[in-house]
Write a protein that binds this DNA or RNA. Structure first.
Lengths: 219, 219
DNA sequence: GGCCGCCTCTATCGCTGGGTAGAGAAGCCG
DNA sequence: CGGCTTCTCTACCCAGCGATAGAGGCGGCC
């Protein structure tokens, strides 16, 4: 089963380079080339390639717009964006446009070929520089201030455990059995908990748990 | 300039495998091994490795905790997490803990070696499966599809109102006065609500409210 | 050793919460 | 109009929850 590749770049020399690299592989074959976005979209409809190697900067319909058109419908070609510049805007727009990968043109041929094969399986590949930045922007909002709330620290480990179970919707009896203690003991913990959290009942405790980050809405 | 590697895994066989792969490379050298997180942290302080290959599941201090300790101070070793399971929780926690990379143990040796060299330059590497999911969760919030849950639509306006008040921590009596009805009426609504939400009590209803987006952790 | 914090357990008590089974009033829609 | 849904209310019951007031064991700390 060979992987069918469509090469899209406005510079003939660059296209030739990619074609040479890809066609040299036994399991890959270049089924077409395009010099602008509009041609790429039209060709993709005819040729049904598995992978599109897409440049961004092109006359007319650019690579990002073309990617959007290509990935709108399901089970259409996976797009691997290749560009000289790793500007953040390009990267994020490309990913939002539906690209499965983003490499720089100075990548090693071997890396490019690997990327094509991985993307063909439905997975994704990013240039290491970009991976680093994506992780950064991903962990940044998550860790502005991990907020080691004084409230949380005032709880004993056992109380934190009980609070988590309460916020998971468990009754005292259930908590007791999961912790291997009596219901009475659980009640003791719950009472201490409610007092410390200044909560009237377990619902208010649950709300506090969410606010403290002990529980998360799953979506 | 050789890259100095510390191998951390609780299974001796696995360690041996990594050591063999890494030490076979002329530009890489294994400077030490550890079988648990605590040892890893201590060894890292002595040996000052460039890269730590870190397993997650280990006795005592696990890989995530050890990573946190290792990456707390600046210019300390880069951590490449290697695990058998690509559970989302592991991945995100590892990245937040400061890991520079995340690969599965079934990765090709060549990929592992590449990853080590890339991470040593300060960039980042993720397994393709993970890259795909990271991109997904990254582009997901951009999609303006608030996902109108069928559950929410099955509720009458009054029931939604009651649910919101429950999730705000109010008692039946308080809800009754807020809505200007009797406690009995409130109970009727609460009962209908719990049945529809398939919740046993108001805590579980509250959790559902958070998941449906009717309530939000304030932070 | 003595103190203290945490975990454990017991016991009792009142109240809220949730289940069940009604029934009447108002509004919408075919 | 007749049927439907929704909102309202009533009454009863009991299980679970939360408050209170204990007490003993264990470990760490001074």
């Amino acid at each position: 089963m060979t992987i069918r590749v469509l090469v899209v770049d406005d510079q003939t020399v660059v296209r030739a380079g990619f074609v040479a690299i890809v066609d040299a592989e036994p399991d890959l074959t270049v089924v077409g080339q395009a010099g602008d976005g509009a041609t790429a979209v039209a060709l993709a409809a005819d040729l049904a390639p598995d992978i599109v190697l897409m440049d961004i900067r092109m006359p007319g319909l650019d690579g990002l717009a073309a990617t959007r058109l290509l990935t709108e419908k399901a089970d259409l070609p996976k797009v691997l964006v290749l560009t000289t510049f790793d500007l953040d805007e390009y990267v994020y727009e490309a990913l939002r446009a539906g690209a499965s990968g983003f490499l720089l043109k100075d990548a090693q041929p071997q890396d490019l070929l690997n990327a094509i094969r991985i993307i063909a399986t439905g997975e994704a590949v990013l240039a290491p520089t970009i991976t680093r930045r994506l992780i950064q922007t991903f962990t940044q909002p998550q860790t502005p201030t991990p907020a080691p709330s004084p409230l949380l620290n005032s709880l004993t480990p056992r109380e934190r455990q009980v609070l988590t179970l309460i916020a998971a919707g468990h009754s005292n009896a259930e908590i007791a059995t999961t912790l291997g203690v009596t219901v009475g003991t659980t009640k003791s913990h719950v009472n201490a908990l409610l007092t410390k959290l200044n909560a009237r009942d377990r619902v208010q405790a649950t709300i506090t748990a969410y606010n403290l980050g002990l529980a998360h809405p799953r979506n």
